[in-house]
């Protein structure tokens, strides 16, 4: 998901324009020159400047970006080279963790913590390539252990839902 500097730079600059415009709309504090609008406008101006510099490639050669990237590639391991060749499926898999978190928000109060967490763990374990005979027991046991720690020991009010735990 590496976008060109032109795209990210324009995005940053647009964000800056929105921030500065939004900032200028805030009502001032009566009798004061400096109010809630100053800071967003300063940030907006900075973002516009940075965004333009990134998009136009100014300062691209400021520092050893290439070197840093080479280092980064090395750190992230030789493993990255062996990436599967299916980029679309890849990108879709990246959406799974945030999607499961949103599922948690939707489902936790409706069906309770343990079933929700079990579904999350089962789905993500399969996405990580676990076999069913590993994923199933993990999805059955891990939520109970997490529930025990957070609900019993740390007193986080996790919703009981369909499957209340005995403690």
């Amino acid at each position: 998901m590496r976008l060109s500097d032109r795209v990210t730079g324009s995005f940053v600059a647009t964000l800056g324009v929105l921030a500065a415009y939004g900032g200028s709309q805030f009502p001032p504090v009566p009798g004061q020159d400096v109010g809630p609008s100053v800071f967003p406008m300063v940030i907006g101006a900075g973002l516009i400047l940075c965004g333009l510099m990134i998009a136009l490639g100014v300062g691209h050669s400021f520092e050893d970006e290439a070197e840093a990237e080479a280092d980064l590639a090395e750190i992230q391991g030789l493993s990255q080279q062996a990436m599967p060749v299916n980029p679309l499926r890849h990108r879709l898999r990246a959406l799974l963790p945030p999607g499961l978190l949103l599922f948690y928000v939707y489902a936790a109060d409706r069906i309770g913590f343990v079933p929700t967490a079990a579904i999350m763990i089962f789905a993500s374990a399969l996405a990580f390539g676990a076999k069913i005979r590993v994923a199933l027991p993990l999805a059955a046991l891990a939520p109970i252990a997490i529930h025990l720690i957070f609900y019993k020991l740390l007193r986080v009010p996790l919703p009981p839902g369909l499957l209340p735990m005995p403690w």
Partner: peptide, 16 residues
Amino acid sequence: APRATIMPVILVCCAV
């Protein structure tokens, strides 16, 4: 320990 067992648990821990 395979990643496939650790990462899902971490995800749930993030939510909780």
